[in-house]
Amino acid sequence: MPEVKILEEVCKGCGFCCDNVCPVDILVLSPDRINSSGYHPAIVTDMEKCTGCGYCFKICPEPAIEIYK
């Protein structure tokens, strides 16, 4: 089962990964969490569904995403 790790301190909350990128739509910007730069980082809502396709990583400018399999 693939696992996506968002590096909260590296994420700039751009929302790219949350917008029409993930085929199973499990990424959202967290309304509650906030990092030390003041950005709301992306979070994974349902890790079970992740296919490990890597699209979220590829569109991430930082990159603030790591994927494990």
Partner: peptide, 21 residues
């Protein structure tokens, strides 16, 4: 578990000062 996607070794650890997006 093995890392299949992540920061490549061709980049330094320095965080980029670009705007979000």
């Amino acid at each position: 578990m093995k890392k299949i996607f992540g920061r490549p070794a061709g980049l330094t650890e320095t965080l980029q000062r670009y705007c979000p997006g």
